[in-house]
Amino acid sequence: MPQVSLTVNGKSHTVDVEGRTLLVEVLREKLRLTGTHVGCDTSQCGACVVHIGENSVKSCTILAVQADGAQITTIEGIAAADGTLHPMQEAFREYHALQCGFCTPGMVMSAIDLVKKHPSGLSEQEIREGLEGNICRCTGYHNIVKAIAAAADVMNGKRTELARAAE
């Protein structure tokens, strides 16, 4: 049985896998990082998005053996060590960008990558098109788009604090 070594959220792990084992299965079942979800079987929904190095990746679309040696960050690993939320997490809460929460981890991980890849800022249309690979059935995306725009301003240094949603 193949063995893979992964660094996930800064911790090193070596696990035995089958050749057909998907990365998401290792994360969820072997490492018990169940924040990464599986919402489909055709690489469409994006509930399983994690970061490998600097890129967002659908962890249902990569075999565990392909990720051997990778530096992986999951939704469990993006808040600061003291528990302070990442600006994207904080923005999702402030703008009510989640309802059932199932697509949320993948949505947040995709959104962080999207913002990082657009350091000069994003239009509403760019945000919407950038979310092509993430499906949400609850929110109608309206508040997700608002949250990402607000988080982007903080991540890009345009604001020091998250802009508050309307009261």
Partner: peptide, 9 residues
């Protein structure tokens, strides 16, 4: 939201 956003649902 806190648990859902932290992967603790």
């Amino acid at each position: 939201d806190l648990r859902f956003l932290s992967g603790r649902g």
